[in-house]
Design a protein around this nucleic acid. Structure first.
Lengths: 215, 215, 215, 215
DNA sequence: GATGAATGAGGATTCATTCAT
DNA sequence: AATGAATGAATCCTCATTCAT
């Protein structure tokens, strides 16, 4: 009931040196990695986007891999924080799926790249996931299952189906951002406008209400 | 009522020469492209997987790009066929969402790579989509909307929300296959077994029933 | 008395493909490695010397390291063969130090680079020695000691000094070739002319006679 | 009899600034250059060994080249001093080969890196030798020859062979230190222990006695 | 149809060096 | 005196592609 602190430390971005430049590199890298994936992104592109020469990147990150890791960790921190909050005992928003949806949508609405990064990571089988992130994801998975089995979802779905419902919600949320650019191009309508995002959020809340009936 | 032919030709794989070898190359390429994306896949890997040297690939495909296109077209043909069937006037399964789900799941269950290819393509904004495929996808989108607005979904959702419902279904279907490898690794449970696939199909049918109520 | 075959196979140069080009690469590499050592030699130089572009080198050798290894193995084979002959039981020149000196000098006289390669290798502590070469060198060392303890050297030197005598001979032989370029530059006299080599060979034979008295 | 000053100034280490730090840099550089040669040594390694960042090295030495030169000059000073003493008219140890051997061995025994530096320099043809050092080495060579032709060696060897004898002695002395690390690795016995050094010194004295008979 | 060889373009990374602080 | 940041030049290596065989 009281707001207990989250049980494990949030991953922090190990900004090696020079705050500002490193941040700008991370921003550029996040955009490119989320657009083109790891191997589709070149340091040349990153450097150009920041306005540096390639070797300068190495003053801030030890390698392309570790730049990627830093991007993931910086980006996932907040998202995982929200999820963790949702799952943690003692958190006041524990189990409040509607609220998670709202917060996650707000977050991803501002940084849609994160969603795309997740999808890239998913496709590559998480091979490049930091140990740090792995350590975060595993318990979240575990507690999500644990909770779903006792929460409102259990009223509507039998046990073995619950993971499928959780996965489904995850894909609906993340996929929206992943498909936005293609949707714009093929369809002409922009999923990333404020109103479109609001509509999707409302839709998700309704979905939550349908899939996890409170009563 | 009778099975009218689909209204436009299915994309065919342009097997330049050597039937069997070309097929084997496509198989290898499909596996690798779906795992690592376009830029993450090298012709070296493809050749090795087929048991050829790299230059031999050029006896069958003009370039890496066109190999990729061939993979997409060969793979998407059947899927688009099913969708097209679902949407075409005169098709006996027109509008039968449950049946589409079953057929798509059966198809992707056997070739889960296709789902992952779609996701890769989505993320890259469809930049590498063949004109052929673009010509397929656009009308499908269009007719899907058209139909949804008059079909059973319209009973449950107001007009502006219908695209979101369609997108959601799409992401749930495709995402399942995309996340399978990661799920196996992080979670230890295999989403690709026959029984897991059957369970997901059932779940999807229930979802369809919920989101697109027949009555 | 009869010429028994050497007891272990001579290291052969694993010429991956394309005989002639690979040989030319090896020649160029041998010259450069012996002049500038491993890290002082660039593939750019090697390629230029052969008249190729850098990537072509990779059609013949997997890496700079493996090119270096191939150079060593190709070069050392004959030298180690002579030594092995000298040490092997059953060889008719077994223990005939004078003859080894002659043969080694003839060999190195034609390929003085080898001597310099040995010295480079020595200085770097043999870190880059192929397992193959290590397997050759160890037994040669061992048998050299073994033999020296019972051969003519034992008449002149007590046991603990024998390794020092052997090392000394080795350094006199190898050092001659190693210092030749510097000697030419600082001193103006060329140690690599036929007559200079003959003189050194004679000198070495006299040294052998002094250090390993036959009687 | 009286200790006449050496006829030209000993090379001194040009410590630009910061006595102690410069010395530490020189020590680190000497160790690395002698182990890996000039091009195999990076300023990063040197800096790391001293516990500084790379740019700090530039507060003490103008460039990698000049650091190398400083290492050579600092190291060779004493050695050349001994040789010069040996050769200088008026020096009390003039022509006393046994004594030179003892002093050189004592010196190199404490700083075996110097020997290895010499060998590296030799192999690279002395391209990086300071003008200062060149000015030292040339006259030493000259006087060595001059003296050998009139000294005890002349009793044993005819004139044209004398340079070979001198070279041989040089290689035996220097090679011992150069091969020590490899010898340790391949053979397990350490040539750098006090007793091993003493044994080698004794051996060298015996060699001197043999090659340059006093009577 | 298969492949050894060659290569232009480019990829990540290292290195010595400079400069402002 | 020390160093974070920046960088031109170069290093090893990979990639897609071509071509002669």
């Amino acid at each position: 009931m009281t707001t207990t602190p989250v049980s494990f430390a949030l991953p922090t971005v190990p900004l090696r040196k020079g705050e500002s430049t490193a941040q700008r590199i991370l921003d550029a890298a996040e955009a490119l990695f989320s657009e083109r994936g790891f191997s589709g992104t070149t340091l040349r592109d990153v450097a150009a986007r920041v306005g540096l020469r390639i070797p300068s990147l190495y003053n801030h990150f030890a390698s392309k891999e570790s730049l990627y890791a830093a991007v993931l960790e910086r980006g996932f921190g907040p998202v995982l924080g929200v999820l963790s909050d949702f799952l943690d005992e003692g958190s006041e928003s524990r189990g409040d799926a509607t609220r998670v949806v709202e917060r996650v949508m707000a977050l991803l609405g501002q940084r849609p790249n994160l969603a795309r990064l997740v999808v890239h990571e998913t496709l590559s089988g998480g091979q490049r996931l930091t140990p740090l992130l792995r350590n975060w994801i595993a318990p979240i998975f575990a507690r999500a299952h644990e909770m779903a089995e006792t929460g409102p979802a259990a009223r509507r779905w039998d046990a073995e189906r619950i993971p499928l419902v959780v996965l489904a919600m995850y894909h609906v949320v993340v996929g929206y951002f992943a498909i936005a650019p293609l949707y714009l191009e093929l369809n002409g309508s922009n999923l990333m406008t404020t109103s479109a995002l609001a509509r999707q959020t409302e839709f998700l809340k309704e979905l939550v209400a349908t899939l996890f009936p409170e009563e």
